[in-house]
Amino acid sequence: MTVDLTLLLTAATMVGVGTYMLLERSLTRVLIGLVMLSNGINLGFLVASGPAGDPPLLSRYDAATISDPLPQAFVLTAIVITLGTVSFILAMAYRSWQLTGADDVQDDVEDASIRRLAAADEASEGFDLGESRSPDDEDDEIPEELGRERETR
């Protein structure tokens, strides 16, 4: 199979740029990244379909010279699906802007808690030291007391 280098490089560039945009914080840029990615991949399908030929209409053209219609069907399906996805993400970005005034991709709850935990680590180390200097601090007595306290309630 011969490969059209121009098409291939264009596809690769678009996928690269799309991936870069996908890493942005703003949902609008992520969306542009997704569109670039999907178009790059669609070009990739054209690379996969081999050299260009006549339109795939068997009644008018010889079967030997027509281009492969199947990847074109794939691309059409992919375009339709991307259209739906893009409109959905646009709606979500708009809703996010309505609710929070920004369309940023927000932090995962888990990420945020891990960061809080890491930040609290320093503070607790200091707290720990101060705690150990106080004379009446013994680990053992406390849990038992708490346990008894619970039972009596």
Partner: peptide
């Protein structure tokens, strides 16, 4: 009072 002890997070 029932107390809770703080150790390393």
């Amino acid at each position: 009072e029932p107390r809770l002890v703080h150790r390393r997070n």
